[in-house]
Amino acid sequence: MTELAPSSQDAMAVVRAQNLGLTFPTNDGDVIALSDVNLTINKGEFVSFIGPSGCGKTTFLRTIADLEQPTSGTLTVNGTTPSDARLNRAYGYVFQAPALYPWRTIAQNVALPLEIMGLSDKAERIARTLELVNLTGFENKYPWQLSGGMQQRASIARALSFDADLLLMDEPFGALDEIVRDHLNSELLKLWARTRKTIAFVTHSIPEAVYLSTKIVVMSPRPGRVTDIIESDLPAERPLDIRETPEFLRLAARVRDGLRAGHSYEE
C-alpha cells in the first residue's frame, strides 16, 4: 500500500470530516441528513454524538462505516477513504439492535467475523472477548436464551473479536433499563481504558454522553449539523458517582444548552 507521509496532525486523526454533507433523495423531496459537518476524531478518543431523533447521528456513523455515501465534502478514515478502511477491516460496528444470527450460538456469533476474515486462533479470541463483556459461560447458548442486555453485550464482543482499533456504536444501550445501562457503561469505560480503542458512540442520554466521553458532539436537525463540540475535563478514572459532582453537572448543563440552542426541542 502506498501512503503519503501524513502530517503530525493527521497521524492522530482516525476520522476526519470536512464540510461533509449527505442528502437522501426521496419521493417527496430531498432529505438533508447531514450538512457541513466538520469534525476530527483523534486516536484513543471516546466521542459521543448526542442530538434529537432524526438529526443524522446514525447517518454519520454509517457514512464512516461506508454504509452510506456522502454527497458532498470529504471524509477520511485512518487517512484513507471509508471504503478502503472497510476493506482493511478498520472498524467494528455495533448496531442499535444486537443483530445476532439466531441459528448461531453466542460463540459462533462472535466467530462470524473471524470466519469471514479468515483469522486464526478463533477459540482464544472468542474466549477473550466474551470475558471482556462478562459473558464467559454462555458460549453455547443461543441468542433467544439470553436477555436483551446480554445479547447487546454479545454483539459488542462480536465487534471486538477481530481487534479493530475503531469502534462505532449506535445507541448500543438504548433499549436497556437504567441499572443494566449503568453497569454496561462502567464496563465499557473499563474496556476502553484497557484496550485504548477509539470509540464513536451515539446516545440520546445526556448523563451517558458526559459520563463516557472525552469529547461530546452535539447535533441538531433540519438539517443535520454539528452545533457544539465539548471537550470533557473529567478525570480518566470515573466511578459511577462522579455523576453527582459539580464538574459533571456543569458539563451536562452545557450539553443541554447546546441541544436547546439547536432549537431541537421546539416545534
Partner: peptide, 29 residues
Amino acid sequence: PEAIQLDLMHTYSATPWQVFSKLRWPAAI
C-alpha cells in the same frame, strides 16, 4: 435477512458467497 444483518456482512467486507452461505441460506431453511 434484515437490512441490519446484511449491513453487518458489509462492514466485514464479506464476499457474495459468504453472505449467501452464512446468512441467506440459513435464514431460508
